[in-house]
Simulated assay, not measured.
Amino acid sequence: MAKINEVKSMVKAGKTKLVPGLVQEALDEGSAAKDILQGMVDSMSVVGDKFSTGEIFVPEMLMAAKAMAKGVDVLKPLMAGDSSNSLGTCIIGTVAGDLHDIGKNLVSMMIESAGFTMVDLGVDVPAKRWIEAIKENQNVTLVACSGLLTTTMPALKEAVQTIKGSSLTGFKVIVGGAPVTQEYAVEIGADGFAPDAGSAAVKAVELVKSL
């Protein structure tokens, strides 16, 4: 466990060069890949909370995400053979009528660092495109819809309800963006909501583990 705690500390500190070696050391000591991954996810939760409260800013959060991604790279070969540890594919995009992608890109990086394979549909994604993407990709466990404008809230609602109303199953839908609230997420039928990129990664893992 001592090595996992070191991994967690170095992820929080964004030490991209140190994390892979520490992850390997933790494995050599007998720690399970899934436990190391969970430790890193927990670290990102702390990083996300600090970002939410303004204690750290985007550069620090990106460094932590990159550090975690380096650690996940070490774990991937071990988790590939164990489907219970594989988090699957996440389809992400910004809804129709919205051209903002900075927040989406940050969320994408964070969710990827948690161990997902990302498929980014970009911006201005029409409702039917989400359905096509789910059909085109294997093992889709999460669909992440982003909306940054108040005026595109109806498009977010349409996207979520189109996805949830389809005959497709086996995944959860998470939403986020500046004007989105937990209440609105519930109202439109989303499975989850995250107020920022840090908590999006944590929520993504939580949702998929409940499948």
Rank of each mutant, 00 (worst) to 15 (best):
M153Y: 05
C90N: 12
T141G: 01
T89E: 01
M153A: 02
D124N: 14
K128Y: 15
L148I: 07
I92M: 15
G93N: 05
M118V: 13
M110D: 02
T150S: 13
G115W: 02
W130T: 03
K104H: 14
D120I: 09
T94C: 10
L99Q: 11
L156C: 09
I131S: 00
M110G: 03
G103C: 11
S108R: 13
E112L: 08
V119T: 06
E112C: 02
L149K: 01
I102Q: 11
A114P: 11
I91L: 09
V123S: 05
I111Y: 02
D124P: 12
H100C: 02
T141V: 03
T151R: 09
G103A: 05
S146D: 03
A155V: 12
W130C: 02
A144C: 15
F116T: 00
L121Q: 08
D124E: 12
V107T: 08
L121G: 03
M109V: 14
L121S: 06
D124T: 13
Q138E: 15
T94Y: 11
I92L: 10
L148K: 01
C90H: 02
S146A: 11
I131Y: 04
G93C: 05
E136R: 10
L99A: 04
D124R: 12
A127F: 09
K104E: 08
I134T: 04
R129D: 11
D98E: 11
M153W: 05
L99Y: 13
D98Y: 10
Q138R: 13
T152K: 00
M118Q: 09
N137T: 07
L106K: 04
T150R: 02
I92P: 03
G103M: 14
S113M: 10
L106Q: 09
F116Y: 06
K104M: 12
P154E: 03
A114N: 08
L99R: 04
S113P: 09
P126S: 00
L149R: 02
M118Y: 10
V143N: 01
L148T: 03
T117L: 12
G115N: 06
L99S: 04
V140G: 04
T89K: 00
L148G: 00
V140P: 11
G97E: 05
G147Q: 02
L156Q: 09
K128R: 14
K128A: 13
T89I: 07
A144L: 15
V140T: 07
D124V: 12
E132W: 06
I111D: 00
E132H: 07
T151F: 05
C145F: 13
I92W: 05
V140W: 08
V143C: 08
F116I: 09
V125S: 07
P154M: 03
L149N: 00
D98V: 11
M110W: 06
L148A: 03
K104A: 11
G97Q: 10
L156S: 04
M110R: 01
M109R: 13
V125D: 03
G97C: 05
V123W: 05
V125W: 07
N105L: 07
I134F: 01
S146H: 09
M109A: 13
M118G: 05
F116C: 01
D120S: 06
P126F: 01
Q138V: 12
V123F: 07
N105H: 10
M109N: 13
L149T: 01
L149S: 00
A127C: 06
T150N: 03
I92V: 14
A144Q: 08
A96T: 14
T141I: 04
A127E: 15
K135N: 13
S146G: 10
I91Y: 09
D101G: 02
T117G: 02
